Amino acid sequence: MKISYKPLWKTLIDKNLTKKDLRLQAHLTTNHIANMGKGEHISMQTLIKICETLNCDIADVIALVPDNDP
């Protein structure tokens, strides 16, 4: 299984926010945003900050997908 951040990008669109807005509001680094854009892992602490900032559930930020999915 791997992590997909597609739910996060959809949540940002639904809330009319940009990645830059998220970075500034959640006090994330540009590396956090870049890593998520590449589908790389980020810490649970960072995921919690994102959920608190967006006032959403973890399922609105990440999804688990099988390794053979594109």
Rank of each mutant, 00 (worst) to 15 (best):
L47D: 07
A63Q: 13
K19M: 12
C56G: 05
A59D: 15
K19Q: 15
I33C: 06
K20V: 14
K2C: 12
K20N: 14
L8E: 04
K15T: 07
I62D: 09
M44N: 06
S4H: 05
N16S: 14
I62H: 02
W9C: 03
V61I: 15
A34M: 13
I50R: 01
K6R: 10
D69E: 15
A59G: 10
A26G: 09
R23S: 07
L12R: 00
L54P: 08
L8Q: 02
K2W: 08
K38Y: 04
K19P: 06
N55E: 14
I33E: 02
T29P: 10
K15E: 10
I48A: 07
D60S: 04
G37N: 09
M44W: 03
L12M: 06
A63N: 11
A63D: 13
N68Y: 10
I62P: 07
E40K: 00
H41Q: 14
W9K: 01
L12N: 00
D69C: 12
T29E: 11
I42N: 01
C51G: 07
G37T: 04
Q25V: 02
W9F: 05
K2G: 06
D67E: 13
K38V: 11
D14E: 12
L47S: 05
V61E: 11
P70L: 15
M1V: 07
Y5E: 11
E40W: 00
K49L: 06
M1G: 09
T53L: 07
C51E: 09
R23Q: 15
N31C: 14
L28Q: 03
I42W: 01
K38N: 13
G37W: 01
L17H: 00
K10C: 11
I58L: 15
H32F: 01
K49H: 09
N31H: 06
V65E: 12
K19G: 12
A63S: 14
L54M: 04
M44P: 02
L22R: 00
T53S: 04
L47K: 01
I48D: 14
H32A: 14
L54V: 08
H27K: 03
K19W: 03
G39I: 08
L17M: 13
I33M: 06
P66G: 10
P66T: 10
T46S: 11
D57I: 10
L64S: 04
L17N: 00
L22Q: 03
I48K: 08
L17I: 06
I48R: 05
